[in-house]
């Protein structure tokens, strides 16, 4: 099973907790015989590399160097994420099962790949704009929230790390509770739960 993971942070580029979580996730998936392709951002380490733990990592840089905010940075970077993901897709004979996108930054790319290839994606939520920047009512925050909402709307599954987060997503974005899977990173069944979610999604994948 080929899985593409999108994350805006991945070692050695560590911004918050997400980088370490995604590193561990990718490594554990490889141990469970999943072909893992991580697409991430780095300022200068670009291209595809095989990491020590068997994860294929594609690091892309933004061709537009000057930005007026994180939004323009993220939105332009998405085209390079798509380029990397499309390369993976064609290289593995279109046999990608799903995309797992962590937080909002690369939601646009996941949405395009879904519409173009019929490739389902899971939206894994580390944090929400409402919690990062309360009360999240500036034009910037509202814009980011609208991308989060698009992710919830277009995702086949939403994956969260706690019941609290699930309830917050239901409260803030009115996402149907049944669409959200709670997978606790500290639980013994963590990676099995992730795999179960992936398998339930890949079954419904339309291919062209």
């Amino acid at each position: 099973m080929h899985v593409i993971i999108f994350s805006w942070e991945y070692p050695p580029r560590v911004v918050g907790q997400l980088a370490e979580y995604v590193r561990l996730l990718a490594a554990e998936l490889v141990k469970n015989r999943v072909d893992v392709h991580v697409v991430t951002y780095h300022d200068f380490l670009t291209g595809a590399v095989e990491e020590p733990d068997g994860v294929k990592v594609f690091r892309v840089a933004n061709p537009v160097r000057t930005h007026v905010g994180i939004l323009t940075w993220a939105l332009t970077l998405n085209q390079e994420v798509e380029r990397a993901a499309a390369s993976i897709y064609y290289q593995v004979g279109k046999q990608v099962a799903l995309v797992d996108v962590h937080d909002w930054h690369f939601i646009p790319a996941a949405v395009t790949l879904k519409n173009a290839f019929g490739l389902p994606f899971a939206y894994s939520v580390e944090s929400l704009e409402d919690h990062r920047a309360p009360p999240a009512n500036t034009p910037y925050s509202m814009s980011i929230k609208s991308i989060e909402w698009l992710g919830f709307y277009e995702a086949q599954r939403v994956c969260v790390k706690s019941e609290w987060m699930r309830d917050e997503i239901v409260r803030i974005h009115a996402v149907p509770k049944g669409k959200i899977t709670v997978v606790k990173p500290k639980a013994n069944s963590w990676i099995r739960d992730i795999l179960a979610m992936y398998k339930s999604m890949a079954g419904g994948a339309g291919k062209n």
Partner: peptide
Amino acid sequence: NPAPDFATWVYLMNLNMQ
């Protein structure tokens, strides 16, 4: 999508267009 400025609006519009 709400946008804080014109350039950001352009990129967000491109998201929907794409």
